[in-house]
Design a protein around this nucleic acid. Structure first.
Length: 550
RNA sequence: GUUUCGGUAGCUCAGCUGGAUAGAGCAACGCCCUUCUAAGGCGUCGGCCGGGGGUUCGAAUCCCUCCCGGAAUGCCA
């Protein structure tokens, strides 16, 4: 039995007790949580205080009644105490806690796996940056969040498909082709400038140079527009994929917007919306009545020049995702897209009646500070700090951990000078160091002839407070996964990692693991093996490695 | 104006389905390496939880209101 089951059983027994005492009603919710100081026990409940009003009795009296009725058989409870102003505090039997060590060692990386999914299949779309330039540091936050959330959902027992929507069908690709064309012609001494909607990034110049090297002046003589389009998308996409995979982020599906047109899906979507009266014509454009569904105003889906707006293929795209059978669609978007949520949901609701299946997680923007000044991230200007720079200069682990630490809706200030110079102060090293330290203990133990492959499964010498604190945190891992999954909150994982590393470091400083006492040494090695498993697994959830040496 | 996300220690941020003395890292200041990695441990300093009302036995957390900051408010994507 794991800790979560035990807590459930204790909860159930509280419920039975309340029923017996006649205090239980439909609204009664029993909450068991961990108190602040350890003098208040391992777990506590505030149920007596909650009941005070309905029962019209003092909380302490109710608490006493509950404790007297409570049947603690098979619940591994050492003692129960009542504390002011009415808390009921539970102290667990230590033998139960040490059994957790064996459970973790047996389950290995499967420890903490949950079964929350019940067959649901989530599609998680993130990054989806246009292939018109490099990824910058703002995109890195999105990549980190989407990837970490995906890993957490998988751990929690959901089936997950990670998807990247490639905008290779719209206006921006036209601008890309023209930008490459201009750079290409400049290489032949032509005096022309990038148009105002063009892209100024270095990577555009690189692409033009490569084309010149290979094809010489061929596209001076003939029109290169279509070629530049294909070449630009392909080469930029290749770089995007490489940058992302070096960042530890991979996708299951790279979905091309262009295929929506090729398969007439956009047309079909538009026809459906028009035929079912969800649209009207005004000023020569076709408008979608999204304001009927919670949007602040209606939106154009076909411009007066006959072309589509951004949302039109996007509606078709989301319909396509639904048709592929996902039970939930999660889009992770930047804070500047928050106005987009209602109109997209409205459109999905019109066309499928399933607007609820779409969940949009908004990620607030990263403000980058360098030399005390804000650096504006703009792809058009080409002056962004790229993900590639960060990976090369700082490394993947610090930056992924850094992003994972913050909740999605925090407006982050990222001071580049600090991030680049003071890398040793990044909390990621604190957690990684714990892992490396444990590994080092095992290396030493093996040198001294300990058989670390055959660790004890029963414990008689683990008695210290530090050990129990460590075990208790290990026991909380499944619940941490659950919380992180429910709230789509990777930062709950990094908080946990930090607590676990802290408990370990404290334990390490207090107790010599390898001593002359063989039994004691082996039992402690068993505890540390469990710690190592959980540390590594938790770090992996946020895409951070667990090195054996530092 | 409207929508939305923030305002918690000097700085960067947790805590927000109401609970016990409000936490962490960094910064500052003290201790602790003849012993498994000092990228560590232990301690000190530091808070009108933006302001004001309300609900409650109990509010950083819920409700109302005001103030401050970011973002959005395109027939751009």
């Amino acid at each position: 039995m794991n800790l979560q089951n035990l807590i459930e059983n204790i909860k159930q027994e509280f419920k039975n007790t309340l029923v017996n005492l006649g205090y239980f009603s439909e609204e009664t919710i029993i909450v068991i949580d961990t108190p602040k100081g350890k003098e208040n026990g391992d777990y506590s409940t505030n149920i007596a205080m909650k009941l005070a009003r309905v029962a019209k009795k003092a909380p302490l009296i109710i608490a006493k009644e509950i404790v007297n009725q409570f049947n603690r058989n098979n619940l591994f409870i050492e003692k129960i105490e009542i504390a002011n102003p009415g808390f009921i505090n539970i102290f667990l039997d230590k033998s139960f806690l040490t059994n957790l060590i064996t459970e973790i060692n047996n389950q290995g990386i499967d420890y903490g796996n949950l079964n929350m999914g019940h067959g649901e299949h989530y599609n998680i779309e993130f990054v989806s940056v246009n292939p018109t330039g490099s990824l910058h540091i703002g995109h890195a936050r999105g990549a980190s969040a989407g990837d970490s959330i995906s890993r957490i959902m998988k751990k929690a027992g959901y089936k997950v498909t990670k998807e990247y929507y490639v905008n290779d069908g719209g206006n921006q690709i036209h601008n890309l082709a023209i930008s490459i064309d201009v750079r290409y012609q400049q290489l032949f001494g032509k005096k022309i400038e990038i148009p105002k909607d063009g892209y100024h990034g270095e990577e555009i110049i690189d692409a033009a140079k490569k084309i010149k090297n290979k094809y010489k002046d061929r596209f001076i003589k003939e029109d290169g527009y279509e070629f530049f389009k294909d070449y630009g998308v392909n080469s930029l996409l290749k770089t995007l994929k490489k940058d992302l995979s070096d960042y530890g982020v991979t996708f299951d599906v790279w979905f091309s917007e262009k295929t929506l047109y090729d398969n007439k899906l956009v047309e079909k979507t538009v026809t459906y919306l028009i035929e079912n009266n969800y649209t009207y014509e005004k000023d020569g454009a076709i408008w979608l009545k999204t304001s009927d569904y919670n949007d602040e105003k209606d939106r154009v889906i076909i411009k007066s020049d006959g072309s589509y707006t951004y949302i039109t293929p996007d509606i078709a795209y989301h319909m396509n995702k639904l048709e592929r059978g996902y039970t939930k669609l999660i889009d992770i978007l930047g804070g500047d897209h928050h106005g987009y949520i209602n109109r997209l949901k409205a459109a999905i609701e019109m066309i499928s009646g399933k607007g609820d299946l779409l969940e949009i997680e908004i990620l607030q923007m990263v403000k980058v500070i360098q030399n005390g000044k804000e650096v504006k991230m703009s792809k058009r200007s080409g002056k962004a700090i790229t993900l590639r720079d960060i990976i090369d200069e700082v490394g993947v682990d610090p930056i992924r951990y850094f992003f994972a630490m913050r909740s999605l809706n925090t407006h982050m200030d990222l001071d580049l000078d600090l991030a680049l110079k003071q890398t040793n102060e990044n909390p990621v090293y604190y957690a990684q160091y714990a892992h490396a330290r444990i590994n080092s203990i095992f290396v030493t133990a093996e040198k001294k002839g300990y058989n670390t492959k055959n660790l004890p499964t029963e414990f008689t010498t683990i008695t210290s407070e530090k050990s129990f604190e460590l075990i208790q945190i290990l026991g909380n891992y499944p619940d941490t996964i659950r919380q992180a999954a429910i709230h789509r909150a990777p930062h709950k994982i990094t908080n946990y990692v930090n607590n676990l590393a802290s408990a370990f470091h404290s334990f390490y400083n207090d107790e010599q693991v390898i001593t002359d006492d063989h039994l004691n040494t082996m039992e402690r090695l068993s505890l540390l093996n469990a710690t190592k498993i959980v540390l590594k697994d938790a770090l992996n959830l946020v895409g951070v490695s667990a090195p054996n040496k530092m």
